[in-house]
Amino acid sequence: MTSSATVGPAVSAGPTPAPRRKRRDRRKALEIAIFVGPALVVFLGFVILPVILAAVYSFFNLRAGFQWDDLGNPENFVAFDNYVRAFTTPEFLRAIGNNFLILGLSLVIQGPIAIVIALLLNRRLRGRSVYRLLIFVPYVLAEVTAGLAWKLLLPPTGGVNALLQSLGWEHPPAWLADPNFVVWTVFAILTWKYVGFAILLMLAGLQGVPDELSEAAAIDGASWWQVQWHITLPLLGPTIRIWAFLSIIGSLQLFDMVWITVAPAVRGIASETMATYMIQQGQFAGQPGYGSAIAVILFVISLIIALVYQRFALRRDLAGAVTDRGN
């Protein structure tokens, strides 16, 4: 609009007769309804409604295959019992602990690995694009396929242990079957799967770091590591914070990899996550009410962490992406 004023006489600025304008407004409203309507219906019906239903179900004691009428039966209403039960069940508390363990490990271990490798790959290397391609391969695979591949590699007498034995480790553990190791093993698999994506993000972020700064520092005699530490890394801040956000959310929602790689018996005593516990209880143990309470807890924890993180860490980068971008 501003430009039309400078370029020449604005055509649309002229006064329009009232009835014509009214008709035009109605037509516009119709266009909006037709264009946004389908997406809105699908979104409200299959995203928002189920989440609201989860909150409703969480206050009831329901059996598998229950009817809508059951919600009207006061006998089934249990108020906060499902929540009390969740927070007094050691299995669920351990699941929360596992989620946060994976979350912390991801930030502390995957992040630095990804940054260092991205910095190395950002140097002039022969065949750089090939390395980038290969490192990204695990991320491309479905979590199920990747999980199954590792499940085939990691049995006590599998390929990994054969390799370790040939390297001199006589009795390597049963990685996915030993309750003491299983969470760490799952974390290692997740690192293998997702570090490529983190590297790629960091590389994309490095593109935004101007060469001039590091060149100037190099001329002033700074070593390669000094340049990375004092110049590149701070400028990579926004990318790192966004990656950390994705990593946090992913860790809290973790389901596929645990469900696929760990046998149910071992999972139950050692590697349950909030999501696997929820599906186990809500779907396969036939307790949709209790499962829904777990879903709500999972949602609230994720939401609080996401909001706090956005408020304090992402503020500078996004300045409230949810509110500002729509303007």
Binding site: V47, P50, F255, M278, A295, V322
Partner: peptide, 14 residues
């Protein structure tokens, strides 16, 4: 955009 905060995991059972 609020839908970004509603993961499938949470809605799965209902």
């Amino acid at each position: 955009s609020a839908g970004l905060m509603f993961p499938l995991t949470v809605a799965a059972l209902p």
